[in-house]
């Protein structure tokens, strides 16, 4: 072997100081991502069925005497208002919306035989309790009660989704995309001006619900 091999000598550090620093930053970034993902997972463990005491407590909708608005049960806040905020619950709500044939009266939110969820007008107010109560107990002029068809947490999930259809403000969480053709803006959009421009919608069906 001749000793005249030329090329880099390997006496110094393999990486320059700058490269090492870059590598350290990248490594730190990856670790931070992993930690964030783990924390995210821990924060919201998936529960397919709520515990019986929780579901019993979720039944306690305290409505005002006229059936409009009221306050949700304390357990709803203790749970961290999941039905409006978590993507899983919103998505379950979306599945329930199609499973229970809501679209046959309410369309894809645009309404039909039943009121629209997009026009910014809620016959019984936009609060979760009202919507959950409408689903659970039904309302006059055609809204059936789903008390015996759905469990109470399903009703809350569906209420969360219905509220998200006509949301007044953008959300960070969203249900999954629709497979069908889009007929309206996505649920997590910022309020689409065009939907609300017509003003607080005319009450087209004066027989439905109390007049404003």
């Amino acid at each position: 072997m001749s000793s005249t091999v030329s090329g880099p000598t390997f006496s110094g550090p393999i990486f320059s100081r700058k490269a090492f620093r870059l590598l350290a930053i990248a490594g730190l970034f990856v670790v931070a991502l992993a930690v964030a993902a783990t924390v995210g997972l821990l924060r919201q463990p998936r529960q397919y069925r709520v515990d019986p005491p929780v579901s019993a407590a979720l039944e306690g909708l305290r409505l005002m005497p006229n059936g409009i608005a009221g306050s949700p049960p304390e357990v709803y806040f203790a749970l961290g208002q999941p039905y409006e905020e978590t993507a899983y619950d919103l998505n379950q709500g979306k599945r329930l919306y199609s499973w229970f044939g809501c679209a046959s009266c309410h369309g894809d939110g645009e309404g039909g035989a039943g009121p629209s969820f997009l026009d910014g007008w809620w016959l019984y107010g936009p609060s979760m309790v009202s919507i959950a109560a409408s689903i659970r107990d039904g309302r006059p002029h055609g809204m059936p009660a789903f008390r015996h068809k759905m469990t109470i947490d399903e009703i809350w999930q569906l209420a969360g989704y219905v509220k998200a259809i006509g949301a007044y403000s953008a959300k960070l969480t969203a249900p999954s995309r629709s497979d069908d053709r889009q007929t309206r803006p996505a649920e997590n959009r910022a309020p689409a001006a065009i939907l609300f421009d017509q003003g607080s919608a005319p009450v087209r069906r004066p027989k439905q619900g109390p007049s404003p």
Partner: peptide, 16 residues
């Protein structure tokens, strides 16, 4: 009684 826990994600809802 609980199709979603046995087979999460399937298309059968819990019936009370």
């Amino acid at each position: 009684a609980d199709p979603q826990t046995l087979k999460p994600g399937n298309n059968m809802p819990i019936v009370p």
